[in-house]
Design a protein around this nucleic acid. Structure first.
Lengths: 396, 396
DNA sequence: CCCCTTTGTCCTGTGAGTGGAAAAAGTAGG
DNA sequence: CCTACTTTTTCCACTCACAGGACAAAGGGG
């Protein structure tokens, strides 16, 4: 199938496309209720969109008391690719233009193998999804990488955990390989966009999305838009000092949040606890697997292991302390906690909440929900699809 | 003189008014270079603005090689009132529509006397400025208060250092008394707007403006717009924990930045040092005045007093620590330090810089200027004038 | 005094957009 | 089945914003 390269011709069309993306199939009349255009103008723009084949007719809607209306919807053949590159695994998913996931693959991977090897794997995964009949091609792709990105160009800059990626033209290279438009962003920003589109943050204009995985990052949404900072490194909270003169961190400083709590730090702490025989549960897991990960700590905590629970509490408390500062500064309407360690669940959440509510002023925390992300591992890929759809659904 | 109540009729007119405000008198041709409108359209809108008397003709401009153009400028009779209410003093200034200060009064005051008493004083100061021939009336007024504000309504909310102000309808009350439109905002936000309009931040879209006065606050500018947060308390960084288990703070927590460094804390520390005879300089000043303030510490430091310099260094270091975290999080393009204690000057700035550059990642700090504000005590009133002019120069 | 450049005004054509009228397609009730 | 009332959709005439060319006005330089 020939891919659609059409783009909306004006802001009205872009607006309509986004409404259809976020609200699903809709009648002209319902669209009219939302856009403040005259019926005639609306009809004209819809007709033009139908001509571009970006939207198609979709049968009759239920009656609202009078004549039944003709529904229209985004072309169901449109396909977006969402790629979420983590430190140790990749998620690749195919969505339709309404950002519903049609297929999703997760595979282990190591970013440190460099962009060439990683994208080889990603392209293979995309080909696999295509081969399974979910898509005949892609109309656009969103890519998340675990480090700062110079957003307009789609190029990682000075990514600490991704040696070999600095300056690699991700956007251009993938656009070539996939033959479609590509946008690149920090994985945390994509998680925030995912939760904004389909998760807990649907109605909140200003919120923070803290992702605790191998590292720690924070997506910042201001007025419904992701804020990326001057050099694209906004939200890089892993290296905020959480413990004065604390543990040495890979970045050269001491006491960074990431050095005290993150997937990697947690695994290290668990290993130590197991070796020192502080926890039978962890020790037996170490013996069984030969290694320990954050997931083991989660499992041990779920089994009631006191040491594991303490580790999570301690880490949650550190994280909460940093978040408390950010809440005072940013005064968000919502804080979302997500990432690999959400398996730690409510123990972690409780520790974070305690610390934030204790340390921030009532005006900022009075009506501040702190919640776990709703989407889990799909937040990133949904966010990626949303990123590229925002690009496609903007005036050419 | 009758006050102008006209407002721009559309976005084009608003745009033109702002260009004239920020760029001073301009010819139609020069305006045309900046706004991307056809000459005819531009002429129409300018004519309409001339009709409203918001702008007036202003003679001929120099030739650019051909026919000389007729300049236009904002009506020089327009008068804006800028009010900056601090914890212990008020600044009131009159500006023209180009936000140039025509007259400026500063008086000591105590916010804790409550809004009624304070506004009585402010109105008297405004009357004094008017009586001196600077204005026959005001076309608008901007008010800064030292606490969080529910911005749309212009009402302070839960201000810690302003008991009695909570819920007081500042905007409405003053609008009545002055007979002109009024906008109210946090004093720190106004300082940021001031530095953005006429100070060091003219060209930077994303920056932080840290004001260290009686308390500590931070103005946040995102994409050229002040960010106020969900409840209007964004930038309230005085109660971020800077010292674990540190000094008790009035807010009920321990180790808040404000408890360790601010005008009030500095005065307390100086008093203690003087009483313990750690510093002859401070002791003699205490004897002379019966009390000590941040200004005394500044003077002592300037005179080379080691204890005073240490106090400033210590405080700057604490502040720098908190700012370092904010820089990692927000990745601004500039950090401006301002407020009453800028008298502490480069000793303070050096301490802050050292800490920030040491603790934040290179990508965020690599090209990050940290500078003192340019405008000193006029930043607040200029920002206040700018606030109301933004309001007046927006489509009705 | 002539030619070139810039500025400002006038005028007309085009296209966007509005809002009313009427047709089309329903539902509900008798 | 017919009628009255809704809602949706199309059609059309009218307004208005705006662009852009032609032209006049004003100045500089040779």
């Amino acid at each position: 199938m020939r891919r659609m390269t059409a783009r909306p011709a004006n802001a009205h069309q872009a607006r309509l496309l986004r409404l259809l993306r976020d609200g699903g199939p809709n009648s002209r009349a319902q669209l009219g209720d939302q856009v403040d255009l005259s019926r005639s103008k609306l009809a004209v723009e819809v007709d033009r969109l139908l001509e571009t084949e970006l939207v198609v007719a979709d049968g009759l809607a239920a009656s609202r008391g009078g004549r039944r209306s003709h529904n229209i919807r985004l072309n169901p053949h449109l396909r977006l690719l969402g790629v979420d590159i983590g430190a140790t695994s990749v998620d690749v998913a195919v969505t339709n233009a309404e950002l519903e996931i049609l297929g999703h693959i997760n595979q282990p991977m190591d970013v440190r193998d460099g962009p060439v090897a990683v994208f080889e794997q990603v392209l293979a995964m995309a080909a696999k999804l295509r081969a399974s009949g979910l898509a005949e091609g892609f109309d656009g792709a969103g890519i998340g990488v675990p480090g700062p990105v110079r957003f307009p160009e789609g190029i990682p800059v000075a990514p600490p955990i991704m040696p070999g990626w600095d300056g690699f033209p991700v956007r251009e290279a993938l656009s070539q390989d996939l033959g479609c438009p590509v946008m690149v962003d920090n994985d945390v920003n994509l998680m925030a966009m995912g939760e904004q589109h389909a998760g807990v943050a649907r109605t909140v204009p200003d919120f923070l999305c803290v992702k605790i995985g191998t590292g720690i990052g924070c997506g910042i949404v201001v007025g419904g838009e992701v804020y990326r900072g001057t050099t694209g490194s906004a939200g890089d909270i892993g290296h905020i000092q959480a413990v004065p003169d604390g543990r040495p961190c890979a970045c050269g400083n001491r006491g960074c949040l990431e050095a005290h709590f993150s997937g990697a730090a947690l695994a290290r702490d668990a290993l130590e606890a197991a070796q020192q025989r502080l926890s039978a549960e962890l020790a037996s897991r170490l013996e069984a697997n030969g290694t320990l990960s954050a997931a083991d700590v989660a499992a041990a905590a779920a089994a009631g292991d006191a040491t594991a629970i303490d580790l999570i509490r301690e880490g949650g408390s550190r994280t909460g302390q940093v978040i408390a500062g950010l809440v005072s500064f940013f005064n968000p309407g919502l804080v979302v906690i997500g990432g690999g360690v959400t398996g730690l669940g409510h123990t972690l959440l409780a520790a974070i909440r305690t610390q934030v509510y204790r340390q921030s002023l009532p005006l900022a925390t009075g009506n501040l929900p702190i919640v776990l992300g709703e989407l889990g591992p799909t937040a990133g890929v949904i966010g990626a699809a949303r990123l590229i759809s925002d690009h496609l659904f903007s005036p050419a």
